[in-house]
Design a protein around this nucleic acid. Sequence first.
DNA 1: GGCTGAGAAACTGCATGCACTTTATATGCC
DNA 2: GGCATATAAAGTGCATGCAGTTTCTCAGCC
Lengths: 244, 244
Amino acid sequence: MSREESRGRPATDKVGTICRALRRAIIEQALEPGAKLPEDALGERFGVSRTIARHALGQLAAEGLVELRRNRIAVVATPSWQEARDAFDIRIELERLVVRQLAGRLTKAQIAQLHAHVDAEDSARNGPDPISIRLATEFHILLASMTESPILIRYVSEIAYRCCLTLSLFSRPHSSECAINEHRMLIDALAKGDAEEVISLMHHHLDSVANRALVAQSRPRGRDIMDILAPYAEPLRPHAKAAG
Amino acid sequence: MSREESRGRPATDKVGTICRALRRAIIEQALEPGAKLPEDALGERFGVSRTIARHALGQLAAEGLVELRRNRIAVVATPSWQEARDAFDIRIELERLVVRQLAGRLTKAQIAQLHAHVDAEDSARNGPDPISIRLATEFHILLASMTESPILIRYVSEIAYRCCLTLSLFSRPHSSECAINEHRMLIDALAKGDAEEVISLMHHHLDSVANRALVAQSRPRGRDIMDILAPYAEPLRPHAKAAG
DNA sequence: GGCTGAGAAACTGCATGCACTTTATATGCC
DNA sequence: GGCATATAAAGTGCATGCAGTTTCTCAGCC
């Protein structure tokens, strides 16, 4: 960890800056799913050229936060309910790896850091939903980052952001108390070092989050018109629109 | 799966074309880890401008196949032994999801397709190593693609490619017979539908592959000089080279 | 009034050009 | 000859410009 600072903040990494900004805006729902992201506007806003903005959009698309359609304006991704479910399934497995690796191996400083983060979640509890959702997400990313496994960190972050995005789509007014409590229990179990217990707690926790959010395919708020109307659609005439 | 063709082959997707080509070249070891990838050369080779080549490199870097250092020529990634180990750990979990979801749910056509692929692996057995490694990797990707879960497919593909890359770094002359046999057993178990058995088989299979490749930190062939020399380094003088 | 279609505006796809950084080469010095 | 330094070559970082596509706007028509 000496000369490999590669992922730090290399001098003036404009693309990275824009990515971070957009990522945050998206998970805080400042940019809702479906929101348009024209290269020009982005570039102008961040004081760079379209080239850079475009590159950043490409990265975000690779992470699944942005949808890129040829010759069309990029938009914030709107995951389907099924994709959300899949994302959570994957996330559960990945975070299982995280806690398995971390159980009983955290330093005092790290445990303090985790507690501090949950404290922050606590203070934000009565604030706007998006903020507490973001903080909850970042708790998991903080956890992952303690594994010091770059690959695991990247995947957990990515999938956590994606889940965060779907939360904003499907979740009702967010109820964060229980989640915060579960975070605290998680920390305690990690400190105690009982791997089995931690894994079970994490599984239960993520399952709860997913279920609180995705129960019964709750009305997909910003979803595509075609999907929303699907149950209402009477077969008029085989109109051969997208028959392929 | 009607109007969402987004990831198909949109008209003339130059970036995607270059990505696919490079990806394949990398996992077939036509481009070894550490190989330089100058934007100019790439652009010229594929008949596009640097802009496009650059964009493609960005995507591959996001996948972990390419390393991008500011102001320096991009190179094919050289994962460390630890990263390789981590990658396989993650892969095991992801592929567990795949087979869990697939057990007992494959159509006859799909099973035939899988058998056909293994047949191809068989024919390539006496050919060059890189080809059989690639085919073995693609078997797993084929499997993943049958889940029809875009997220899972993407993650499994990505991690499989990464593992494939590390195989080329650490593996001794590749011995593929057993892997092929394990693939066949996997298909049979999937067809039979015993989820537990399939999961166990897959776990064992991937573990074997990882161990065959990564035993005892076998000499990292193309690794960084500094790492190779680390065990030999005597503390000369605190030269304050990269003390930060 | 509502629908259709032509033209304008807005955007993306991509190549090219210039400034700056790194790397390779050659020169001078000891 | 061996090492440091200057200089050229190669390469990246980024902005800009043009062509082609999509989307918006509004006049014309039923």
